[in-house]
């Protein structure tokens, strides 16, 4: 994951984020399913790891993780319509 390029890492974050949301909805109605809980734990951990790597190597993904280095880094990164991601 550390060696992934920007585009691949962004795709991984998007798809893993989708899985986490799907599993969360499943667990809303199956809160005691061990398989669902295990899968959620795995993918949630993977997502957090991917987000941490992306934000450390490239730019913040949300406004909650912007490091104050004397400028507002969040607005410096390309927006989706500037081909900031493959979407």
């Amino acid at each position: 994951m550390e060696n992934m390029c920007r585009e691949d890492l962004m795709k991984l974050i998007q798809s893993t984020n989708f899985i986490v949301i799907e599993l969360a909805m499943y667990l809303d109605t199956h809160p005691e399913c061990p398989c669902g809980l295990s899968a959620y734990e795995d993918y949630s951990s993977m997502l957090q790891q991917a987000v941490a790597i992306y934000e450390r190597k490239f730019e913040p993904l949300t406004i909650y993780n912007v490091e104050n280095n004397g400028s507002w880094d969040y607005v410096q990164s390309p927006w989706p319509w500037q081909k900031g991601c493959d979407c």
Partner: peptide, 20 residues
């Protein structure tokens, strides 16, 4: 009631609109 089953891989699940 939904039963736990096979999951798609993340990229495929996003494409299909569901991981189940």
């Amino acid at each position: 009631w939904q039963q736990w089953g096979d999951l798609y891989e993340p990229e495929c699940g996003l494409k299909q609109g569901t991981i189940f």
